[in-house]
Design a binder for these strands. Structure first.
Lengths: 133, 133
DNA sequence: GCTATTTAGGTACTTAAATTCCTAAATAAG
DNA sequence: CTTATTTAGGAATTTAAGTACCTAAATAGC
C-alpha cells in the first residue's frame, strides 16, 4: 500500500494538531489532551510540536496549565509553511524526483510530474488554518 | 528537502529502466549495461528487475546474451502498473493519507488532497511506456 | 560437454528516517 | 517553598529502504 502524496506521519500530526488548536482558540492545549483528541502517539506529537515551537509557529508554556497556542492568526498560517517546517523545504526543480543527474537529456517525466508537483505546492500554499477553524 | 510526489528510488529505477528498454526495442538489455546507462546501482537495479520479472512485465533470459525485454507492447504498460509493482498498490480511500481512523468526523483535507491523489492516479494510469520510446 | 556469462533469490549489512525513552528545566498552584 | 505538571532536548531504539554478497540455475558459444 502506498501513499501518492508524500506527507510524513509527523507532518500529518502537525497539520491535524494545529487545526485542532485553531478550532479551540484561544484556549491553550497540552500535548496529552491533544494526543487523546487526535488518537495519536503522545511522544511523537510532543516532538512535532517542539519543532513547531522552535519555528515560532506556536508558543509554549511549561508547567501546569501549560501547553501550546498559535503564535499568529490562523489565517496567516498555510499548510505549506507547516509542511516545510516538519518535512523540509520544497524545491521545485527540473527533476520531479529531486535528482541532480539524469541519463535522459531532458526529463522524460517533466510535463506530467512537474505539473502535479506545482499543483500540490500551490494547493498547499493556499490552504490556510483558518479555513478549518 | 522534500519530494511532493511519493516515488521511491526503486520505482524511479523501474520507470527509467523500462523507458530505456522500450526505447531500445527489440534488443535485450542486461542489468550491467542498464546500470551504466542509468548511472545507477547495479545490485539495486537487479533487484528491481527481478520484481518486474516476477510480475511478468518483463521477461528475462539468463546466460551470455541474456538480459531483460518487455513482455508486452510498450503501449500496454502504464506507469501506474510499474509504480504499483514496486511501491505497492494504491488505494484511493477516504483519507488521502491512508489512515483508517481520524478524529475529525469528515476528513478536513478531503477536497484538496483527494483531488490531487485522484489526479496523480489518473495521470499515472494514462502515462504509457510507448510515449517515451 | 565445458566454460563464461547472466539472472534468481536468499541473507546480511548499512544508512537514514521515524519514533520512543529518559532526564532536565520551567511554572502554576497550594 | 514544595509539589505536581508540562514542555525541552538529547540519547537510544525501531523500522524501512537501499545496497551488497553469495550461491544456484540457466544458457549461449566454443
Amino acid at each position: 500500500m502506498s501513499n501518492l502524496i508524500n506527507i510524513s506521519e509527523a507532518a500529518s500530526l502537525a497539520l491535524h494538531g494545529l487545526v485542532f488548536i485553531a478550532k479551540n482558540q484561544p484556549s491553550r492545549i497540552n500535548v496529552k489532551v491533544l494526543a487523546e483528541e487526535l488518537n495519536a502517539s503522545q511522544t511523537h506529537l510532543a516532538k512535532v510540536f517542539q519543532k513547531l515551537g522552535k519555528a515560532n509557529l506556536v508558543r509554549s508554556l511549561r508547567g501546569p496549565a501549560g501547553g501550546f497556542e498559535l503564535n499568529k492568526p490562523a489565517e496567516d498560517i498555510t499548510f505549506l509553511e507547516i509542511y516545510e517546517i516538519i518535512d523540509g523545504e520544497i524545491i521545485l526543480g527540473d527533476c520531479p524526483l529531486g535528482k541532480n543527474h539524469c541519463v535522459f537529456k531532458s526529463c522524460i517525466f517533466d510535463n506530467e510530474l512537474n505539473r502535479i508537483s506545482q499543483d500540490i505546492y500551490e494547493t498547499f500554499s493556499k490552504m490556510k488554518l483558518s479555513e478549518f477553524s
